[in-house]
């Protein structure tokens, strides 16, 4: 191989090269996001492996949420946001004009930073998604979906006797697991979690992490977290963002023990952020 060939094959971003770990479920190429004048995300190229947990870490304001919200096109709801570049899920371009955003969001579930259950009953919270997508033919099937979703979110035992109580009356950790159950209920392939534990106490956090561990074999999970310990505990791959740039991605072990980039090194050793 001569020098030019090497230069050509080397990606602009070293860390972006996919590492062996499952098939890539989501492929992002040169994704740029502008909020009006502000260039929030710069040329992000990244693969997300299937049926595994990928964590996005980085100092706050570096664009982790912005990128996450590109994956289910939630940025469409922000008037000033302009997204360019390519994002594919299973080889399908999700920014294709002919794509149905509603169907996309059914395939790509989302759990938000602050637990946001609907101010309705626990049952209704979980049943809403399946109902609007017509996933159940009758009440019994719907009951079934609600029960299995709550079980998968390891919330069933705590709420099975009070499914008609309002969801906002649960504790913060329970509310967040309810939101996970609500996302699971529409059988998504991908679940996006934006700092799902930042509003929770350590015990509730541990329960959510256990839950992620339990479901990760069946879903592709992308989690944004500001806690490096959490990234180390729950993820198999990590992507480190800094000032709108994807600095480095790699297997969690590797990133936390021997990162390639100086900035990653500084961040995980707590020198900034």
């Amino acid at each position: 191989m001569d020098a030019t060939a090497v230069a050509k094959s080397a990606p602009a971003n070293i860390g972006a090269r996919p590492q062996p770990l499952g098939e890539p479920k989501i492929i992002a190429r040169d994704v740029n996001v502008h909020y009006g004048e502000k260039h929030a995300l710069k040329n992000v190229t990244l693969d997300v492996p299937e049926k595994a947990v990928m964590a996005f870490i980085g100092p706050s304001g570096c664009g982790k949420s912005t990128f996450l919200r590109c994956i289910n096109r939630m940025n469409d709801t922000v008037a000033s946001a302009k997204v360019s570049g390519l994002i594919q899920i299973d080889d399908q371009n999700i920014y294709d004009p002919s794509l149905d955003v509603v169907q996309l969001r059914a395939r790509v579930g989302m759990v938000f930073q602050k637990p946001n259950p609907f101010p309705k009953s626990i049952y209704e919270n979980v049943a809403y998604g399946p109902r609007i997508h017509g996933l159940a033919r009758n009440k019994a099937e719907l009951d079934e979906i609600v029960e299995s979703s709550l079980k998968k979110a390891s919330l069933w035992n705590e709420v099975k006797d009070r499914l008609n109580d309002t969801g906002t009356g649960l504790s913060g950790g329970q509310q967040q697991r309810l939101c996970i159950a609500r996302a699971i209920a529409v059988s998504p392939e991908i679940i996006l979690m934006d700092e799902p534990c930042s509003a929770l106490d350590p015990i509730a956090t541990a329960r959510v992490e256990e839950l992620i561990e339990e479901i990760r074999r069946n879903y592709t999970i992308v989690i944004v977290t500001h806690s490096m310990q959490q990234a180390a505990r729950v993820s198999q791959r990590v992507a480190f963002f800094h000032l709108g740039i994807l600095v480095e991605t790699g297997e969690t072990e590797k990133i936390f023990t021997s990162p390639n980039d100086k900035r990653t090194q500084d961040y995980i050793t707590g020198r900034f952020g």
Binding site: V102, R105, A106, G109, Y128, G129
Partner: peptide
């Protein structure tokens, strides 16, 4: 009405109209 409710609805695949009329 907090925008998080609308986002929650959109997040499970509700259309804009559904988010408005249901929530």
């Amino acid at each position: 009405v907090p925008p998080s409710i609308r986002e929650a609805a959109l997040g499970v695949g509700a259309s804009h109209q559904q988010a408005v009329f249901h929530h």
